[in-house]
Amino acid sequence: MSNNQVSDSNVDSSETGQTSSTPNSPDSNQTHFGFKQVDKAEKASMVAGVFHSVAAKYDIMNDLMSMGVHRIWKRFTIDCSGVRAGHKVLDLAGGTGDLAAKFSKLVGENGQVVLADINNAMLQVGREKLRNKGIVGNLEYVQANAEMLPFPDNHFDVITIAFGLRNVTDKDKALASMYRVLKPGGRLLVLEFSKPQNEMLTKAYDLYSFHLLPKMGQLVANDSESYQYLAESIRMHPDQETLKGMMETAGFEQTSFHNLTGGIVALHRGFKF
């Protein structure tokens, strides 16, 4: 997960369902860090701290926290990607490279996959993991800020960002940047925690994420605060319809979303034409 994206979940509005361009903070220099209000300049380093702390145990915690279901969510994302041999794919906030590993096989030797993350610790864990699996050749690693992607215009056929957008300081800016580097005909896939669609599920999910999750983080990664932040940042992220609207504002067309596991996670898809 990227940290710069991580940097701060842009003073947004997600809470209220407004778009991120409408800050709801009383001070425009302030932003959310979970439920806390912090200085914008501070948040990037705070989020970076979270991901530095969890990088080593990131995969095992993902499996534990989601009971393995995150693998199914990621498979669904890949199924929706329409990736073919020869495609150029950007896996943004790619973390430990789950999506990039699969894309590398799908695009073949004539294709290219760029695993980008703002957090160097995450990128290193991802690089080591994929190299140990023998996934090399068509895969590049780039430390990049989602808000200012260091790639030419109209460059990628597919961009994915899985569990990374909520950590981005200025989501609108990041979406605009993704739109710029996407080829016409290309698509963006945003896999992110979202709003459960059932009252009972919401209650159970709150109980799990605010009480159980930090304890699991303490036990496994010796870090409860990072997982407390995770739970809080999920609540601050825009809901399904809001994010869809933000994508449309950025220029994406034929936008849609699929709720997964009752809306705990949603996959948003948008095309550039």
């Binding site: 199924d79 041999a85 699969k102 096989k105 799908l106």
Partner: peptide, 18 residues
């Protein structure tokens, strides 16, 4: 079925024909 040095199995989406 996508072939490389392994076989990757994807599910075709109803809204696009592959």
């Amino acid at each position: 079925f996508n072939f490389s040095d392994r076989v990757d199995v994807l599910v075709g989406m109803p809204d696009e024909e592959v």
